[in-house]
Design a protein around this nucleic acid. Structure first.
Length: 353
DNA sequence: AAGTTGCGCAACCGCCGGCCA
DNA sequence: CTGGCCGGCGGTTGCGCAACT
């Protein structure tokens, strides 16, 4: 037996809002507020709408100071950075962008920004691989995780063929921080690309600088890192994937990466299942350090490291934050500026207040 | 000019967690 | 402690328009 619907769907109007309905709703809320009860509100004001629909209309369209469209490059960067770091938690991302709604950001990301940063994927390839793969089970990388992985791959490539990531090269402290296993996944992907793809070449020059730790990272390399990363693969001294600007940021590069990722996810799964748990003092220390990786600080308490990683892979437990876009406009959060070292501090400290 | 395809956006759906009786 | 109600959230859908053939 399913959950009771929030309203009588047979007797509520659906679809686009008319100007008259907008005017009624706006006039009432301007004068009386929502009264703390969206479900009862439409009856009070004589609208044949579901309370949720009223709430959505108000939050996404009618409330004051809403901005539509015209995303700036700075907003693009903030959205991208936060998406890489915390995934599709649009309400939290929206809280960093006054006047923007989670719905707007979500739409903007899905329809424009993702394509701008990742390039346009081949729809046919994408769908066929999803449907034909019988191993596409619950430990498959989520689309969100794959996108974030791909963004990291591009982020770490110094010779990308567009200017979309110049922001990060100018502000390396803003690079999202990663769990060591995330770093390993990315590193292995890069290595696999180097070994298998005709599109990629091992660079002759040392690109160490672009792999240096972000200035704000809490992570410090320890001997134990070798248990997580391939030998000689310290994060701060990695080879870059390619020197060819055409190689990265394009559909063909992404598709090659997808093949490698499917193997890597198995490896990662084995790592998770085989005991990436804090069984030694070193690993316990590592777990503490993981708390400095973007969102990981939020989820460290009371959950296993496996759970933490499932956050990255499946975004399963990403609904705990209490911030919302309503609050984001009423409290006017501090706007993050490029160059701020504290872009992720809110998340490290337990999210926005 | 007409038909088709793709895109962008508003709105809907349903799950989840917090609150409260 | 428990169950129901409600708000919040992210994923998905569907419509309208523009671009393309």
């Amino acid at each position: 037996m399913g959950r009771a619907p929030c309203c009588d769907k047979a007797n509520v109007k659906r679809g686009p809002w008319s100007p008259e309905e907008d005017a009624i709703l706006k006039a009432y809320i301007d004068k009386n507020g929502t009264g703390g009860n969206w479900i009862a509100l439409p009856q009070k004001i004589g609208l044949k709408r579901c309370g949720k629909s009223c709430r959505l209309r108000w939050l996404n369209y009618l409330r004051p100071n809403i901005k539509h469209g015209g995303f700036t490059e700075e907003e693009d960067n903030i959205i991208s950075s936060l998406y890489i770091s915390i995934g599709s938690r649009w309400s939290i991302i929206a809280a960093q962008l006054p006047g923007r709604t989670d719905n707007d950001i979500k739409n903007y990301w899905n329809t424009r920004l993702k394509k701008k940063l990742l390039g346009r994927r081949n729809k046919k390839d994408n769908t066929s691989s999803d449907h034909d793969n019988p191993n596409n089970s619950d430990h498959t990388l989520s689309n969100s995780a794959l996108e974030r992985l791909q963004l990291h791959l591009q982020l770490q490539n110094p010779n990308h063929n567009n200017n979309n990531f110049s922001f990060y090269n100018n502000n390396p402290s803003l690079w999202p921080k990663l769990h060591p296993l995330q770093q390993k996944l990315i590193y292995n992907t890069l290595q696999s690309l180097n070994h298998t793809s005709h599109l990629t070449t091992i660079p002759q020059k040392d690109n160490t600088q672009l792999y240096n730790e972000p200035a704000s990272s809490n992570y410090t390399t320890t001997d134990n890192d070798d248990a997580v990363q391939p030998e000689g693969a310290k994060i701060s001294n990695r080879p870059a994937v390619t020197g060819n600007p055409v190689d990265m940021g394009r559909v063909d590069q992404f598709d090659v990466g997808m093949d490698q990722i499917s193997a890597l996810q198995t490896e990662l799964h084995e790592i998770l299942m085989s005991g990436y748990v804090a069984t030694s003092p070193q690993k316990q220390e590592e777990e503490k350090q993981v708390g400095g990786y973007g969102c990981f600080g939020e989820i460290m308490s009371g959950s296993s490291s496996k759970d933490n990683l499932s956050w990255w892979f499946n975004d399963l437990d990403a609904k705990s934050a209490s911030s919302n876009s309503w609050d984001s406009t009423t409290t006017t959060p501090q706007i993050l500026q490029p160059g701020d070292h504290g872009m992720f501090q809110d998340y490290e400290l337990g999210y926005i207040v």
